[in-house]
Write a protein that binds this DNA or RNA. Sequence first.
DNA 1: GACTGTGAATCTGTTCACAGCG
DNA 2: CGCTGTGAACAGATTCACAGTC
Lengths: 258, 258
Amino acid sequence: MVAGPESSAKVHLAKDIPPATVARLTAYLRVLGVLVDEGTLIVSSEELAAATGVGSAKLRKDLSFLGPNGVRGVGYDVARLRARIEIALGLDQGHRVVLVGIGNLGRALAGYGGFGRRGFTIVGLFDNEVDLVGTAVGPLLVRDVADLVPACAELDPTIAVIAVPDDAAQAICDRLVEAGLRCILSFSPVALRVPAYVEIRRVDLAVEMQMLSFSQARNAEVATRAGEDSPSLRSTGLMGRGPELHAATTNKGSVVRQ
Amino acid sequence: MVAGPESSAKVHLAKDIPPATVARLTAYLRVLGVLVDEGTLIVSSEELAAATGVGSAKLRKDLSFLGPNGVRGVGYDVARLRARIEIALGLDQGHRVVLVGIGNLGRALAGYGGFGRRGFTIVGLFDNEVDLVGTAVGPLLVRDVADLVPACAELDPTIAVIAVPDDAAQAICDRLVEAGLRCILSFSPVALRVPAYVEIRRVDLAVEMQMLSFSQARNAEVATRAGEDSPSLRSTGLMGRGPELHAATTNKGSVVRQ
DNA sequence: GACTGTGAATCTGTTCACAGCG
DNA sequence: CGCTGTGAACAGATTCACAGTC
């Protein structure tokens, strides 16, 4: 009965949630957004799990870390569950993001609609290329990276994204830390050194390709059984929703086939 | 004694390597590349681990899955180890990659030097935008996505990358499977449905941001102890190498601080 | 009856500490 | 003596099965 009709009462949760669960909560959130748009009010663990590509038991366990959220015999209130997850992830306040490095990747990130839709607002763009500084990318002007520290004082960002060439990454990272940033997402494969109080995550695009390469190598090795057996497209019924809900995909650890 | 002086004798390994290890092998590989460029011949587990941001015990265990690769009391032969990892990951043959969706992200991927350097050659670019078809992106011309299946027969790719809008992702994915692709990397957050024999990995850029958001929320909750304590920049000595080798970064599971 | 929430069992990954070897 | 390679202890994540509740 902990589930009173609070709206943003900060139920003090969000403390002991395992990292693996956090990673999946974001996936549930996305699907819940689609369901809200469709006007769906209630969803069962089975349905939500199928739409996200995980097992239903895992999903229930994940959600249980946020406290009781569903109604037994019925399912989960879509809107309420979404709000609950957003609070747990700290997304309810929104985030102000600065992006450093406006090459192709930076541009792609700046234009990526998925961010805005999920509570991330890009508030600053930086680059060191003189030709680029002052030009508009979307609704923002690119600033000189030399002004990073003072500009951050003004912009008050909570998250920084690094999308600069490898050899510049550490210097930019240092500057960001100096500017007071505590959460940094880097797209450079180099291991960045930061003080312990700074949270840094790295996305290395080549890693994903290499993991694919490995599984191909493994499969090729087992035999060249190019047999077209096993269609096995999980069809869990109940899935006749939008044209955007599909089941069964890997997530992150590896080849999590379910 | 298994370690004879073979060059590419396919030691039949690469079978039972845990996924978590595979993910890290790619990181070691990158650092080894830097070391080779610098002319370093021998590296110890301690050094390599520091440069990659993992613990040395973990590194040794990871490498042990490939068989004995080092010399006790000395360390690892840089060039030999690199070759060994490349074989294990199936990178020694190289990979032919087709890229579907030439928006900002696709363009960023097409221009990303990290791929070529690591054995991935982009051999085909596809989009459905008429204005784009026929234009050059780097050394390649963009092809019409309608020609995907016949073009793949000609290009013989081993990996496909999907960088199209969310609502087109499943259709493109189906087309790629039809074209015979078995390894697909998708940048769309939607869970794609594929036959069981197809390996698919998903990279959701928003997930990483949301995980950062979570850790910030957690930290803010514990208290606003903005204390500037703990500088703790691991400095393991032995690190006076290039300007590109740094230590201590998270990897993937979460906040793997070491 | 249906579906959630969860302890208990299992599996996977990490850490430790040391034996084994050059 | 130093460093690799690894069994054994440990921690974390997943799966199972069912008790609890509407």
